[in-house]
Structure formats: structure tokens, C-alpha cells
């Protein structure tokens, strides 16, 4: 029964390398290696990022539940991100503006830098500077950084509905988003300049 290795196990480095290759290959193949694709989400001319992102989240989420039902994975052993209310929200605001300015997120910038996108290499340099700035100013908000700790909470518990109902709603909402954004994209992409 999975998970097979712990993160400290050196085999997990090899697995991580292989997973990284698949991850980078898919990001580049799907077009995330162009900053225009991620920016398109916010201007309505290209929603592929939304399609890939939510399809991946649903596939992995449903897959984990199936693996659990079949007894192939112990979900108690799987890492669940801890929720810190304030820091998560502030982090999201910074990251959102970062996406608008750069047209990348860290993952996509690596897949773009790999094919020679100079803007992506510059973006990666920026992330390093940003992480360094965060570290330098850390004493100013070290208390805030640890505040609002709710632990590894699950979204269906936070909302107060059953896991099954949440998964169903999530899939329905995703399909609705796919349909609506496809319509918006058809309308908007005719009006704007291609490059």
C-alpha cells in the first residue's frame, strides 16, 4: 500500500526527478512556456491554463480517492498543506500580481526557461530576489507568518459538507467553467491582436 517512500528516502529524489520531467514536458507541450497563455486567463483571450489546471486537480483528486477505496494508498500518510489564514491570503495577493506582471508562475517559468525564453529566466531571477527580500524582512512579520494556524484542514470540512457532495459540486463547477470560458474565449480572441 502506498505511499511507497517517505520524502527523506533517497529514492524519492529519483522519483521526483522523473515526475519533474513529466511535469515540465506537459507544461511546455500545453503552451505554458509562453507568458501570453497565463496572462490570457485574465484578459479572456486564452483559457488553456484554467483547463489544464482544473482537469489536473480533478484527475489527481479523484484518483487519490479511488486509490483509497481500492486500498492502494493510505490517505492518512499523504501530505496535506497546513492552512494559515492570513499568510495564505496575503501570499495569494502577491502571487496574483506576480502572475499579471510576469505571465508566469514558478513552475511555468522553468518550463519556459528550458526552451530559451529570456523573460522566463528573468522571472526566475526575480523569484530569487523576492525570496531573499522575504528573508531579509522576515523579523517584521515572523509572528504574522505563523498566525491563523488551522492545521491540515480539508476544504469540505471547512465548508461543512460531505466529501462526496464536495467532489460532485467541484466537478460540476469545473465543467461549467470550461463551457463558459470557451464561449468568452471565442468572443474575445477575435478582437485582439495576435503575436
Amino acid at each position: 500500500m502506498g505511499p511507497i517512500f517517505t520524502p527523506a528516502d533517497e529514492w524519492s529524489y529519483v522519483v521526483a526527478l522523473v515526475i519533474g520531467i513529466g511535469f515540465g514536458f506537459i507544461l511546455e507541450s500545453a503552451g505554458f512556456s509562453s507568458a501570453r497563455k497565463l496572462a490570457g486567463v485574465f484578459y479572456g483571450y486564452d483559457f488553456i491554463v484554467i483547463r489544464v489546471f482544473f482537469t489536473a486537480a480533478i484527475t489527481a483528486g479523484l484518483g487519490l480517492l479511488y486509490f483509497h477505496y481500492l486500498g492502494w494508498i493510505d490517505l492518512e500518510q499523504v501530505f496535506v498543506n497546513r492552512f494559515y489564514i492570513g499568510p495564505t491570503i496575503i501570499g495569494g495577493v502577491f502571487a496574483g500580481i506576480g502572475m499579471l506582471l510576469g505571465g508566469f508562475c514558478p513552475g511555468t517559468s522553468f518550463s519556459a526557461a528550458a526552451i530559451g525564453k529570456i523573460d522566463a529566466m528573468i522571472f526566475i531571477g526575480g523569484i530569487m530576489i523576492g525570496a531573499f527580500i522575504f528573508d531579509l524582512a522576515y523579523p517584521l512579520y515572523s509572528e504574522f507568518y505563523k498566525s491563523g494556524a488551522l492545521g491540515p484542514v480539508k476544504v469540505y470540512d471547512s465548508i461543512g459538507i460531505s466529501k462526496e457532495l464536495f467532489v460532485l459540486l467541484f466537478v460540476i463547477i469545473a465543467i461549467a467553467v470550461f463551457v463558459i470560458t470557451a464561449k468568452i474565449q471565442t468572443k474575445v480572441s477575435n478582437k485582439i491582436q495576435k503575436y
Binding site: 495569494g92 500580481i97 528573508d135
Partner: peptide
Amino acid sequence: GGVMFGIGASFA
């Protein structure tokens, strides 16, 4: 953009 993301990904 990178700087903002670097800070954001640290907070989050």
C-alpha cells in the same frame, strides 16, 4: 513579477 511571486510563495 518574479519578485512579487517570490514574496507571495513565501507567505503562502
